[in-house]
Simulated scan of single mutants.
Amino acid sequence: MSNILWAQRKGKKHYVGQNGRGAKVEIGMGENQFTPGELLQVALATCHTFSADHVFAAALGKDFDATVGVAAQKDERRDSYSHLTVEMVANLSNLSGEQVTQLRKKSQEAIDKYCTVGHTLDDGASYDFDLVSE
């Protein structure tokens, strides 16, 4: 298997995730760490905005400010998320009602076309786990 992404254990429920480009993220339950579920949520949220960034830039200007958030409804019994809601906040005050409607439509089309994380969740991706000796 390719080592495109990996996580190194640093302690009890503490890993450092890495990619081949040198980025690192602290994963765990402690201070300054993302839980795996939080990473999934932020991946979905940013996948949405990455997918439609060109649409937003065309309507709001190339240097537009935005914040994207995500909220999760958790099914405690299954220890899974039953629904995720993504919301982007940006200054739309310079757009007419029709322009906002068009921006919503075009951005959703881009998200539907390009958001790999959303497609993966929609498709119910399967996964495997294997334990390998060094």
Rank of each mutant, 00 (worst) to 15 (best):
A43Y: 00
A72M: 05
S107K: 03
G28S: 02
S51R: 00
Y127E: 10
T116A: 15
G11M: 03
I111M: 01
F50N: 12
K105R: 14
C47E: 03
P36D: 02
A52I: 04
V25M: 14
G28L: 05
C115N: 07
L44M: 06
C47D: 03
N91D: 15
K12C: 08
L131F: 11
T67P: 01
S133P: 08
I27S: 02
D53A: 10
R104I: 07
E134V: 05
M1N: 14
D53C: 09
T85K: 12
E38W: 01
D65W: 06
I4Y: 11
M88H: 01
G37R: 04
A23H: 08
E87H: 05
K105M: 14
L44D: 01
D122G: 13
G61P: 02
T101N: 13
R104S: 08
N19W: 00
F56L: 13
L92H: 10
Q8K: 14
G124R: 04
T46E: 11
E87S: 11
K105H: 15
V42M: 10
R77A: 14
F50G: 08
G61W: 11
D130S: 12
Q73V: 15
L121V: 07
K105Q: 14
D112L: 00
A58C: 06
R21S: 14
S107C: 04
V68F: 01
N94K: 06
Q41M: 14
G97S: 15
S107Y: 03
D123W: 04
L5A: 11
L39N: 04
G20R: 12
F50K: 09
Q99K: 06
L40K: 08
D112Q: 04
H14V: 01
K62W: 09
S126E: 12
L5T: 12
V100C: 01
H14W: 00
L131P: 02
S107F: 04
V70A: 10
A58D: 13
F129T: 14
K24I: 04
Q41G: 13
A110N: 05
Q73C: 07
R9K: 15
G17W: 00
Q18T: 10
A72K: 02
T85Y: 09
L44S: 02
M88D: 07
A71M: 08
L131V: 14
V86H: 02
A110I: 00
G20H: 09
N32I: 06
A66K: 09
